[in-house]
């Protein structure tokens, strides 16, 4: 099992808020603004951790459980996410099921803590989040399972390594699976065609509205957890890409970080050039990702030999 290093975990712990900064700066560039500092998420999180809290009288300890367990689940999930050529800290057959499970755990408790406030806005956000997530989960799993169809790999490490070789062997399948994973990345991280992280109207929010009532250290956890989640899915997308995999350690780290930077910039570009989809159209986007994963899988079963 444990064959990798903790490098990825440390990198994520230190650098993940930077990704949010990069996305914001990219969007600012497209909008012709100067934009917030790259390290804004660090300042936010640090400041929030030092602040006091406002708690609603309606809430129970479940309200605490959302951010706390959310961040704990994200950091434990980091343990088995590879980064480019760097293997994950822990790797075992089926670890990506545990990854999906931990993400589901974080989401479940976040949804509950939103419902705990009794606010109709947060209930609305929770309902939409639960709906989209329930469609995204099978897509995520079927994209990864497609990769294990031919390579026979069963841990996230091996799956990503196999996927990156696939680009040379079976380009269409590789592109299809990678596209599905990228849409999952956008959906899970509440990015643009699905959810607008910058919206200012509670009615249109999904992810942001669920944490309206959190404040102080709890909201600090939420901000930091968002960054770590972005890092997790970003690393998966990067590790699947053959471009950002290099074997030797110091160089490998740099290449992988460059990959994450590229993914963040790409996210910023997507957010700048696309409008948000109507809520009713989002399921079709996710279903489209599912179609792409399944077609990839069918190609991998040997149809496209």
């Amino acid at each position: 099992m444990a064959d990798g290093s903790m490098t990825n975990v440390f990198l994520a712990a230190v650098l993940s808020p930077l990704l949010l900064g990069v996305i914001n700066r990219t969007k600012a560039f497209f909008a012709g603004r100067k934009g917030v500092p790259l390290g804004q998420a660090y300042y936010d999180a640090a400041k929030l951790l030092r602040k006091g809290m406002v708690l609603s009288r309606t809430t129970t300890p479940v309200f605490w459980l959302g951010p706390v367990a959310g961040l704990a689940a994200m950091t434990s999930a980091l343990l088995f996410v590879p980064l480019g050529g760097l293997p994950a800290a822990v790797s075992f057959p089926g670890d990506w099921i545990l990854l999906a499970g931990l993400l589901a755990l974080a989401r479940f408790l976040t949804v509950l803590s939103a419902l705990d406030t009794g606010s109709s806005f947060e209930g609305m956000g929770a309902s939409r989040e639960a709906f989209f997530a329930s469609l995204t989960e099978p897509v995520f799993l079927s994209a990864l399972a497609a990769l294990s169809l031919k390579g026979g790999a069963s841990s996230l490490n091996d799956l990503c390594a196999f996927a990156s070789t696939l680009f040379a062997e079976n380009l269409p399948a590789a592109v299809l699976v990678a596209a599905a994973l990228f849409i999952v990345y956008l959906t899970e991280n509440a990015r643009l065609p699905v959810d607008d992280p910058n919206t200012h109207l509670e009615l249109t929010m999904i992810h942001e509205v669920m944490v309206l009532d959190h404040s102080g250290p709890l909201f600090g956890y939420v901000v930091y957890g968002t960054a770590v989640k972005l890092w997790i899915f970003g690393s998966i997308v990067v590790s699947v890409c053959p471009l950002f995999r290099a074997a030797s350690a110091p160089f490998g780290v740099l290449v992988a970080l460059a990959g994450l930077l590229a993914v963040a910039v790409l996210t910023g570009v997507v957010e700048s050039v696309m409008a948000r989809l109507r809520l009713l159209r989002v399921p079709l986007l996710i279903a489209g990702a599912g179609v792409s994963a399944v077609v990839g899988a069918i190609l991998l079963t040997g149809v496209g030999r």
């Binding site: 380009l171 269409p172 299809l176 792409s292 077609v295």
Partner: peptide, 10 residues
Amino acid sequence: DQALWVAFIL
């Protein structure tokens, strides 16, 4: 060739 066929499916 294969890519075109896949595009056709999509």
